[in-house]
């Protein structure tokens, strides 16, 4: 039955259902979030010496527990990306933007985050980006409001 068949005086309301999950982070993810609040990005050194960012608790190859957190840069290189033409309400930016895998300087793996850009033609694999920190940070991935393009490209000098 379509809306046209409903009586005009029928009640109607916007409702929300919300589950207020409060999750413990564990020491490794907790350190990553703590770092974000303090405006420093950290990865973790894997068994083979590679730096994994965001950090993981166990080595992806050997499964050995990992403990050595290392600082990585707040600039990096886009390794893959996708354009979001019509963001939904819960997405980080209201304007169209890119979602990108970003290999931060000093890291060997990529982090998924938002890249602000005027349009998809401005984004490219290999493009250099820099974290734009949120003014109010509370320890979460949204402490980086977005990454912005520096205008440089990997392998070229500015």
């Amino acid at each position: 039955m379509g809306d046209a068949a409903l009586p005009a005086d029928l009640l109607r309301a916007d409702l929300a259902i919300e589950y207020p999950f409060n999750r413990t982070t564990g020491p490794v993810i907790g350190a990553f979030f703590t770092g974000l609040r303090e405006r420093v990005l950290v990865g973790i050194r894997g068994a083979d010496g590679r730096v994994i960012c965001p950090p993981v608790e166990y080595d992806p190859v050997t499964s050995a527990p990992l403990t050595e957190l290392v600082k990585v840069g707040d600039e990096g290189t886009i390794t893959s990306w996708s354009w979001v033409p019509s963001p939904r309400a819960s997405q980080a930016l209201a304007e169209p933007h890119a979602l990108a895998m970003i290999r931060l300087d000093g890291a060997d793996t990529a982090l998924l985050h938002v890249v602000a850009a005027d349009g998809p033609e401005a984004v490219a694999t290999g493009a250099r980006v820099r974290a734009h920190w949120a003014d109010e940070r509370e320890g979460g991935v949204t402490d980086i409001a977005y990454f912005e393009l520096t205008g440089e490209h990997e392998g070229t000098e500015a």
Binding site: A16, I17, E18, Y19, P20, F21, N22, R23, T24, T25, P27, G30, A31, F33, T34, R37, G139, G140
Partner: peptide
Amino acid sequence: AIQRVRLPASI
């Protein structure tokens, strides 16, 4: 150190 985070899931 951050030990927990609020991650509300809502519709």
